[in-house]
Amino acid sequence: LSDEDFKAVFGMTRSAFANLPLWKQQNLKKEKGLF
């Protein structure tokens, strides 16, 4: 994903996403069907 796409899908920047706990990152990915 480009940075723009990433922001559109997750509603946050990559750095904000990277600061989330791993389980939360994985839950978000599953919610968005990216897993």
Score class of each variant (00 low, 15 high):
14 R>E: 10
32 K>S: 09
5 D>W: 06
15 S>G: 09
12 M>A: 01
13 T>W: 00
12 M>D: 00
24 K>W: 08
35 F>V: 15
13 T>C: 07
15 S>L: 10
30 K>G: 07
16 A>G: 08
23 W>T: 14
15 S>D: 07
4 E>R: 15
20 L>G: 01
11 G>K: 08
19 N>A: 12
6 F>L: 03
31 E>S: 11
24 K>G: 03
19 N>M: 13
12 M>C: 10
21 P>V: 00
33 G>A: 12
31 E>K: 05
22 L>C: 09
35 F>E: 15
25 Q>A: 04
26 Q>M: 11
33 G>D: 10
2 S>T: 15
11 G>D: 04
9 V>E: 12
28 L>W: 04
3 D>N: 10
16 A>W: 02
22 L>E: 14
6 F>V: 01
32 K>W: 03
10 F>R: 01
20 L>F: 02
2 S>W: 04
13 T>M: 03
24 K>M: 12
5 D>L: 05
32 K>P: 02
19 N>H: 10
7 K>D: 03
3 D>W: 04
6 F>P: 03
12 M>Y: 04
11 G>E: 07
32 K>C: 06
5 D>T: 09
35 F>W: 15
32 K>I: 05
20 L>E: 02
8 A>G: 07
24 K>R: 11
14 R>I: 02
34 L>R: 08
33 G>C: 14
29 K>M: 10
7 K>P: 07
9 V>K: 15
21 P>T: 03
18 A>C: 07
34 L>P: 15
35 F>H: 09
13 T>P: 08
15 S>E: 13
26 Q>W: 06
17 F>Q: 01
15 S>R: 06
31 E>P: 03
1 L>R: 04
30 K>E: 11
21 P>M: 00
30 K>L: 06
27 N>A: 14
3 D>Q: 14
22 L>A: 14
14 R>A: 06
35 F>C: 05
23 W>R: 12
13 T>G: 10
10 F>I: 06
28 L>R: 01
11 G>A: 07
16 A>V: 08
5 D>S: 14
21 P>I: 00
22 L>I: 13
13 T>S: 14
30 K>Y: 08
8 A>I: 11
12 M>L: 08
19 N>P: 01
27 N>Q: 15
31 E>G: 06
23 W>C: 11
33 G>P: 11
6 F>N: 00
18 A>L: 11
12 M>N: 00
20 L>V: 03
23 W>E: 15
26 Q>T: 13
8 A>Q: 13
21 P>R: 00
14 R>S: 05
31 E>M: 06
3 D>L: 10
6 F>T: 05
28 L>T: 02
23 W>D: 13
24 K>F: 08
21 P>W: 00
2 S>V: 04
29 K>E: 15
16 A>E: 14
13 T>E: 15
14 R>Y: 02
11 G>S: 04
